[in-house]
Amino acid sequence: MLKSMRKNGLILGGFAVVATALVVTTQVLTADRIAEQQRNELMRTLNELIPPALHDNDLYRDCALIQAPEALGLAEQPVYRSRLASEPNALAIRTTAPDGYSGAIHLLVAVNLQGQIKGVRVLQHRETPGLGDKIEVQRDDWILSFNGERVRTENDARWRVRRDGGMFDQFTGATITPRAVIAAVQRTAWYAQNNMDSLFAAPANCIGEPLANDPLGREEQPYEY
């Protein structure tokens, strides 16, 4: 019986080794492809917010890692700079709302030189399907309500849901999610307005540098577009 147990143990151990090897091999073989897909998806989103006609630089490479956790939600976030004929004209800032209903909501916020919001897109979230997921542009046009808006003061009272006296609609049965997104966009736009020159002057250092607490490709995966 002991001999049989040893034999079974060796068989199970062999299966475990083979399975682990297959998983590792698959990860190695697909890592570059996944990274390329993520880059392409990011570029698609960047070009939605800042159309190619408005820039002649590589938005993906003209990127600076910025440390402004109070404004942007994480210790380090990338800022993509748009330039036309070498002249700066807009920023696309990745930011995080830490207080979504089901966890952090990761966003990309585009702002022009006048502080006007060019657009907002959700990169990743875990909000409730059918309720909180209305922040996705593919499911609802609510996220487009930021287009053309500007934050007038740091505590601009208009930047709330209508239930709280603000100018943005809430979702039926899901007020926490829009509150979190509105607050994050407000903080980000205000930060951009007050740091425009330094953000454009910062060195391009995103390529090849891992992001602290990177929400994409690490512990969590982005929702599928």
Results as ranks from 00 to 15, higher is better:
Leu199Glu: 09
Leu123His: 01
Arg126Thr: 03
Gly148Tyr: 06
Val28Glu: 14
Lys118Cys: 05
Gly173Ser: 08
Leu54Lys: 13
Gly119Ile: 05
Arg81Tyr: 06
Leu211Pro: 01
Gln116Cys: 04
Ala75Ser: 14
Gly103Ala: 07
Gly13Ile: 10
Glu224Gln: 15
Arg152Asn: 15
Tyr80Glu: 08
Leu12Ser: 14
Glu224Pro: 01
Gln67Cys: 03
Ser145Tyr: 00
Val18Trp: 06
Ala53Phe: 08
Asp62Ala: 14
Trp159Ile: 05
Gly165Phe: 06
Thr95Ala: 13
Asn205Trp: 10
Leu84Asn: 07
Phe168Lys: 07
Glu219Leu: 10
Glu220Trp: 02
Gln67Val: 02
Ala71Pro: 04
Gln124Gly: 04
Gly14Ile: 09
Asn40Glu: 13
Ala180Phe: 01
Gln124Asp: 04
Ala174Gly: 03
Asp169Lys: 08
Pro51Glu: 09
Glu127Ala: 06
Asn155His: 14
Gln170Glu: 15
Arg160Asn: 15
Thr177His: 04
Thr177Phe: 01
Met167Leu: 07
Ala31Cys: 00
Ile34Val: 14
Gly165Tyr: 11
Thr26Val: 09
Arg6Leu: 14
Asp197His: 07
Gly119Asp: 02
Trp142Val: 04
Met1Asn: 09
Thr177Cys: 01
Ile143Val: 12
Asn147Trp: 00
Ala189His: 06
Arg94Ala: 13
Asn195Asp: 08
Val24Asp: 05
Ala75Ile: 06
Ser86Leu: 09
Met196Cys: 00
Phe146Cys: 07
Gly173Ile: 01
Arg162Asp: 11
Met43Glu: 15
Glu87Cys: 02
Glu127His: 04
Ser102Met: 12
Phe200Leu: 14
Ala64Pro: 01
Cys63Tyr: 10
Lys118His: 06
Pro69His: 07
Val161Asp: 12
Ile50Val: 13
Gln193Asn: 05
Ala180Val: 03
Ala184Glu: 11
Thr175Asn: 05
Leu144Pro: 00
Ala85Trp: 12
Asn47Tyr: 02
Leu123Glu: 12
Pro178Val: 02
Glu220Arg: 11
Pro178Arg: 01
Glu87Gly: 00
Pro210Tyr: 14
Ala68Gly: 05
Ile11Pro: 03
Phe168Ile: 08
Asn205His: 08
Ala75Tyr: 00
Ala71His: 09
Tyr225Cys: 01
Arg6Asp: 00
Phe15Ser: 12
Ala92Cys: 04
Arg81Phe: 01
Ala157Glu: 08
Ala90Ile: 03
Ala104Gly: 00
Thr96Asp: 00
Gly14Val: 10
Val151Arg: 02
Tyr80His: 14
Asn195Val: 01
Tyr101Leu: 14
Arg162Thr: 13
Gly14Asn: 11
Ala189Cys: 07
Thr26Asp: 13
Gln38Asp: 11
Tyr223Ile: 01
Val24Asn: 10
Asp133Gln: 10
Tyr225Gly: 08
Ile135Pro: 07
Val28Gly: 00
Thr45Arg: 14
